[in-house]
């Protein structure tokens, strides 16, 4: 798609979100101008009025799908994008606005997300991958600056970005932070949450609140057991799982299980 000698074209799109993930792009104060030199920022309305028509080499997509119109728009974006990368918890899991998905009686019904046609976009907030093929997902509420820079530079150099899928515990160990659950008895979602944030919550004396969503194959039963041993009620764990990644399957299913 990119002709020889021309710079890759980047587009940044917004759906239901707080703008924090695309702001992270502008927060790369040290890297922004260098990144901008390596590519053509073809569509990024929060940053520029300039607009270059597609197709685009890379589309970064922020936000979740909450309206019928947006459910259409994401298909148009997919068609124009060689690579589509979701940035952040909203685009990747539905965001905090997906709490509506488990409101009322729906709490008791396991929702089926495999068929986009099944979803009423007015009543649910859904991740981009429920609607179109996604090539790469960046986790986090918000995304990590270093993972964003790594992703952009990898894509510019036509290699796969290195995004670890281990738990926050690994980052605590690397950072030398004593385990808040073991040492302080503080409930922590770190054991089931994907790394990438730098394990900042434990470093600041609080338990991880899961804003990067579930790691690969999390042991939710073991976590529930540990929290119970720390004296946490089921209802409190359910609320802890139902925040910015409430709709991520592992958190969604575990919280549904706990309310049964």
């Amino acid at each position: 798609m990119t002709s020889v000698g021309s710079k890759p074209k980047l587009a940044v799109w917004k759906f239901a979100s707080c703008d924090g993930c695309q702001l992270t792009f502008l927060d790369c104060e040290d890297e922004l101008l260098a990144m901008a030199e390596g590519m053509e920022i073809a569509y990024f309305p929060e940053a520029t009025s300039a607009e270059v028509e597609g197709p685009y080499d890379v589309s970064l997509v922020e936000g979740s799908i909450t309206t019928a119109h947006d459910a259409e728009r994401i298909h148009e974006i997919r068609e124009q994008s060689r690579l589509l990368v979701t940035i952040g918890a909203c685009a990747t899991s539905g965001g905090i606005q997906a709490l509506r998905n488990v409101a009322d009686v729906r709490e008791w019904i396991p929702l089926v997300y495999a068929t986009p046609g099944f979803i009423s976009t007015l009543e649910t907030s859904t991740p981009i991958a429920d609607h179109v093929q996604v090539d790469l997902e960046l986790r986090g509420c918000p995304i990590s600056k270093s993972q964003l820079v790594e992703t952009v530079s990898a894509l510019l150099n036509a290699r796969r970005p290195r995004i670890p899928t281990t738990s926050v515990c690994v980052e605590c160990k690397a950072r030398g932070t004593p385990c808040v659950a073991v040492a302080e008895g503080t409930p922590c979602l770190g054991p089931v949450t994907q790394s990438g944030c730098g394990a900042i919550c434990p470093a600041y004396g609080r338990g991880c609140y899961g804003c990067f969503g579930p790691m690969e194959s999390p042991n939710m039963a073991a976590l529930a057991r540990q929290w119970r041993e720390l004296g946490v009620e089921n209802a409190d764990l359910v609320r802890a799982l139902r925040t910015f990644n409430a709709n991520a399957p592992a958190f969604r299913d575990a919280s549904a299980e706990l309310t049964r």
Partner: peptide
Amino acid sequence: GREVHPVN
């Protein structure tokens, strides 16, 4: 702790 959505 971080720039967007600080945790502390």
